[in-house]
Simulated scan of single mutants.
Amino acid sequence: MMKIRVFRFIATCLLFGGVLSPSFAQDKATYAYLGLEPDIVTNYVGQSARKLGYVRVTVELMINDVDNLEVAEHHMPLLRATAIEIFGRQPEEKVKSLTGREDIRRAILKALQDHMRQETGGEVVKNVIFTKYLYQG
């Protein structure tokens, strides 16, 4: 069973002297978080062709609207496969560095957004978050 966590965020909420800004009611944004479960576990390319490393990552997708949660769940196999494919193409240096990790996260986000745009005609995935990131190589 996929774990789904829904949170409501206030996009901008300014509190001045105990009074909320007048735009408070209009600036609400509702995001949902959907975990790619189980964790992504895959190989990456090591320094030599004979050596492979592996990475285990817990990935949470920030869905741009609670109403799109079912759409994202429906496309979960595509979303998982895309993340696994991108990790599998990464060189060891990228997997092990903080800047490389951020590059991988951005590549996954862009690919997921492109796939969802092709499949649904809209942006469903707002962000990708790594909550656990382990590698061995």
Rank of each mutant, 00 (worst) to 15 (best):
E37N: 06
M62L: 14
A29E: 05
L69Q: 00
L98V: 09
I10E: 06
F24Q: 10
R117L: 12
L15D: 08
M1W: 04
K28R: 12
L112Q: 01
D27N: 12
Y44I: 08
T30K: 05
T99V: 04
E93P: 07
K96W: 11
M76S: 10
G100E: 05
L134D: 09
G17C: 08
Y133V: 04
T42E: 14
L61S: 07
K126A: 05
L112K: 05
L69A: 04
I63A: 06
N68C: 11
L36Q: 11
V45W: 11
T120N: 11
T82G: 04
Q118H: 11
R106F: 10
L78M: 00
R105N: 08
R117S: 13
R56H: 01
I84T: 15
V41Q: 10
T131F: 11
Y31L: 09
D27H: 05
A25Q: 04
P91N: 14
K110V: 07
G88H: 12
I84E: 15
G35N: 03
M116Y: 01
L20D: 07
Q136Y: 06
Y44Q: 09
P91T: 10
A25E: 08
R5M: 12
V128Y: 08
D65I: 03
R101C: 01
G88Q: 15
P22W: 14
K94H: 11
R5K: 13
I108T: 04
E70I: 00
G122Q: 15
V45P: 04
I104H: 03
